[in-house]
Write a protein that binds this DNA or RNA. Structure first.
Lengths: 205, 205
DNA sequence: AAATTGACGATTGTTGACAATCGTCAATTT
DNA sequence: AAATTGACGATTGTCAACAATCGTCAATTT
């Protein structure tokens, strides 16, 4: 998500700073009292400003939700990118770490708090664009990882992007909020078994 | 689901027959007017009987839903079993057919009609046991298929059940009602690409 | 006696009036 | 003039009285 300053400021970061502070408060309140229960009046009052003034920075409450979700998902992608960037580590091990991290963060962020789950639910229902970008972001990172593994001879894949999308689709059970909750006490492969299985596929394609 | 005759009948199939007729009507009405909109009184009136009499055969409306869902899922499993049973066909090709059939039937039955989707939704919310049995059933069939492939030398897997569960988890995107709907217009691997990827994994594990 | 009924209490969905929230904007402050 | 305000219409959520449905059971029919 591009950080768009609505108006030009005398101070370089004044508007942007306020925007960030609104975002931070929104995130905290969404966490603590849930998305629906927090009103933009609540957010404004914490910052000692009028409710209407929030709308100078965010065109709607939905936009606030999207910005918060974007930050959370961005954090995940940032950590995943850090993993992919370790060029000295074998691709297979990076993939293991990647998948484990994606699972861990998805679980903690989406399933742990019921409040958080509500936020994600709303975002998936009425702001799929944010989710879509995140999916594509993870796809891109996975593609890089697979392509590097292919170049180093670790993996044998024809189309890295297709392979990446296969891997991503295969582990959806460990990333998707609804599935994490639903399959919690369901007989299924462990993440380790699944990763090993996928690595075998990557090595042999 | 075991077909339990509530009382002993003079005629061998009288009670069982009525049970089946109730079930058939219930399925039709659930299809046509949705699960919530059809009352047990509706079902009873089609059969010219009192609403209370339905409860001699099904302890609750929920039980009706479970029985209907069980039949639908049972039909799917029956077709899948037919595919697995073709011992003369190579396991790889059987797996391709298996996955394609599972996808096609899931899509048609769950996503096509909105009425049907409601029924499945209710079942997943308050009768997970039915879903759980179906998942395990598919797992068992997949396990047989993988094991046979392993015995014939087509596949190289350590634990057929683990491999089967991995395959099943990997294609959840193509079977799960919510995901079929959600990922409809999402960039993802095609079923064929996914199947090819999984087959590579099975051959090389 | 077994099967069936239909009325009934308990629970669950629906309606409609009311309250809260969203998002706008002319007026005010800095 | 730019930033901020707070009141306001329009939309959305809440709650309570009401209606419908679920599931039971004593009475009735076969």
């Amino acid at each position: 998500m591009t950080m768009q300053t609505p108006t030009r400021d005398t101070t370089a970061s004044a508007g942007s700073d306020l925007r960030c502070r609104i975002l931070a408060i929104a995130e905290r309140l969404f966490r603590d009292m849930g998305y629906r229960k927090t009103t933009v009046a609540d957010i404004a009052s914490v910052l000692r400003m009028s409710p209407g003034n929030v709308y100078r920075f965010f065109p709607s409450k939905k936009a606030l939700n999207e910005a918060v979700a974007d930050r959370l998902l961005g954090d995940i992608e940032a950590e995943l990118e850090r993993i992919v960037a370790q060029a000295d580590v074998p691709a297979a091990e990076r993939l293991r770490t990647f998948v484990a991290a994606l699972h861990r963060m998805s679980e903690q962020q989406f399933t742990a708090n019921r409040r958080m789950h509500e936020m994600v639910e709303v975002a998936m229902a009425e702001s799929w664009e944010v989710i879509h970008r995140h999916i594509e972001g993870v796809d891109r990172l996975l593609c890089r990882l697979v392509a590097e593994g292919a170049q180093s001879g670790e993996f044998a894949v024809e189309d890295p992007m297709v392979a990446a999308r296969c891997v991503h689709a295969a582990i959806v059970r460990f990333c998707h909020p609804a599935l994490i909750a639903q399959c919690a006490d369901e007989a299924g492969p462990t993440l380790e078994q699944m990763t090993a299985f996928l690595l075998a596929g990557l090595r042999a394609a």
